[in-house]
Deep mutational scan, measured.
Amino acid sequence: KLATQLLVDLAEGCHTHHFNSLLDIIEKVMARSLSPPPELEERDVAAYSASLEDVKTAVLGLLVILQTKLYTLPASHATRVYEMLVSHIQLHYKHSYTLPIASSIRLQAFDFLLLLRADSLHRLGLPNKDGVVRFSPYCVCDYMEPERGSEKKTSGPLSPPTGPPGPAPAGPAVRLGSVPYSLLFRVLLQCLKQESDWKVLKLVLGRLPESLRYKVLIFTSPCSVDQLCSALCSMLSGPKTLERLRGAPEGFSRTDLHLAVVPVLTALISYHNYLDKTKQREMVYCLEQGLIHRCASQCVVALSICSVEMPDIIIKALPVLVVKLTHISATASMAVPLLEFLSTLARLPHLYRNFAAEQYASVFAISLPYTNPSKFNQYIVCLAHHVIAMWFIRCRLPFRKDFVPFITKGLRSNVLLSFDDTPEKDSFRARSTSLNERPKSLRIARPPKQGLNNSPPVKEFKESSAAEAFRCRSISVSEHVVRSRIQTSLTSASLGSADENSVAQADDSLKN
């Protein structure tokens, strides 16, 4: 292990032709098999893994070397290190390495390699500790012929580059190093199909959405987006994914797998022009299946994007999809995704031109529960009313008269009656009930004795009459309010007539 670390330190600071010789020695160290011998017992696995620490030291050392060589000349050094790393990870899946030390190597290698970024000039870069990406002036992410390196360097940008540029090249004859992302992409596909350690798979799935944002990485080298989509959909639809995973937390289920895969599918929607129609349908189907899991909100957001990006695919699945959405409970976490999906859909009339009455009724059935102001915040309630109004205007004229009683009944049950079921009123009724029952229970537990009763009969009569009056008032709060309003209006009217009579009498006395 110490000798391997010494080789790594020497290679990191070497800029001459001896660098390749040092890498040859490190490569021989990495070539050791990580498969346990067949006769190895389970209690000896930890000791055997400790004997392979030099392999881990070599791989982690290459990660440090690549981070240094990416910004220094010659660029061919970075290319050689990158290829060695990718080849080593491929061996893991070729020979099915399952030892804990092998999983640790893959975890740290993917953690580093999935941080690679590219700008519009195809320059590769890595983020620093502050998250700012520094791009290399010597390494690009696409394949290029050595003699055409300078031509590639002087080509115009596709868009303004992001991030601070690296140091300027030493001279005009500098050759750019090619670090094609397709090599890593193929290893990522192998990981999605064969990885057995949940920690490694979770890391890859968590980092892929951010990497897919940099389309330069994908399009400048032959990366098959179709295969990526197929691998992701197979993970969700195939039963073998959960069987092969180990190291998963207790209670791990298909729902947890959906939570990890759906963000990658959402990021892949922007590549729909490069996906086969069959793959697009598979993607939409997987998102529909996710509606029954805890990732339902993410799936609804993804389907909203699909309705804009892939209208030809979503239009066929939309009638059944809208009916499925009615089975989702009206909760605060689902309110905004569902209502925004319906609001977006209302502005795309070509998608729902074939809707029948059942689909329009489903839209109103989804939106009406969110009009309850005692359960949802003001934004959700306003958005629900907006969706109902928009869809009522957009639905066909023959359907409107049939939906009017349905909508008014839903609004009455969710908006008007919600004020009668407020917690304050319920607590008031509970308190009044307890007050009504309390005197009775006290009389049963403690019967009054005439000799020891010091309270006069008049006081008892007053208290009983007050309790009886309170019971009468607490029967119905709404009736009490109505009666008080009527009494107030009658009182004001009587006072007004009394004032008029007094004024008339005063005038008569003055005349006399």
Rank of each mutant, 00 (worst) to 15 (best):
S211R: 05
S224N: 10
K193L: 11
R244E: 03
S182R: 03
D130W: 08
V140C: 10
L124C: 10
P222C: 04
F252H: 03
L85R: 02
Q67R: 13
S159W: 10
T241M: 07
S120I: 10
K56W: 04
S159D: 12
K56S: 08
A75G: 08
C139P: 02
L189G: 02
D226N: 11
R213T: 07
P127M: 07
E53S: 09
L60V: 12
G131D: 04
P222M: 04
S96F: 10
A231S: 09
L63Y: 03
G156M: 12
R186T: 09
A50N: 13
S120C: 12
Y93E: 01
L158N: 09
A102T: 04
C229S: 07
E210Y: 07
L208S: 00
Q190Y: 07
V132M: 10
V140R: 06
D142P: 02
S96I: 05
M144E: 10
K129D: 13
Q67E: 08
V81P: 03
A75S: 10
V64D: 14
K215Y: 03
R186W: 04
I218G: 02
R246A: 12
Y138H: 07
P74G: 02
V55E: 00
S103A: 09
F219Y: 09
T79C: 14
V81R: 00
L62F: 01
Y138C: 06
L242Y: 09
V140T: 12
V55W: 01
H92C: 00
E147P: 14
H77G: 03
L62T: 05
G247Y: 09
T79I: 12
K69P: 00
L116S: 02
L242M: 08
P127R: 07
S96C: 10
L70V: 05
V225L: 12
L217I: 03
A78P: 03
R213S: 08
P209H: 10
L184M: 08
G131L: 03
L201H: 01
C223D: 04
S234K: 13
S155C: 11
R80S: 03
V200P: 00
T68Y: 06
C229Y: 02
Q194Y: 07
S159V: 14
S178V: 09
Q227P: 02
G206V: 06
K199G: 10
V59I: 07
P164G: 11
I101C: 06
K199W: 06
G131E: 04
D142G: 05
R213K: 10
G247T: 07
S224R: 08
K152M: 12
R117A: 03
V216D: 06
P157S: 12
L116I: 11
I218S: 03
Y97E: 01
Q194D: 13
K202V: 03
T68L: 04
E250D: 10
A78W: 02
K202D: 06
S103T: 09
E195R: 00
T154Q: 11
P137G: 04
Y143Q: 10
L63M: 14
L201C: 02
T162Q: 13
E250L: 08
C141G: 02
V200G: 01
S230I: 06
L184E: 01
C139F: 15
E210A: 08
L126Y: 13
H88Q: 02
E53P: 02
T162R: 12
A173F: 10
H122F: 03
A78M: 04
L99T: 09
S234E: 10
R134K: 09
L158F: 11
P137E: 06
R117Q: 07
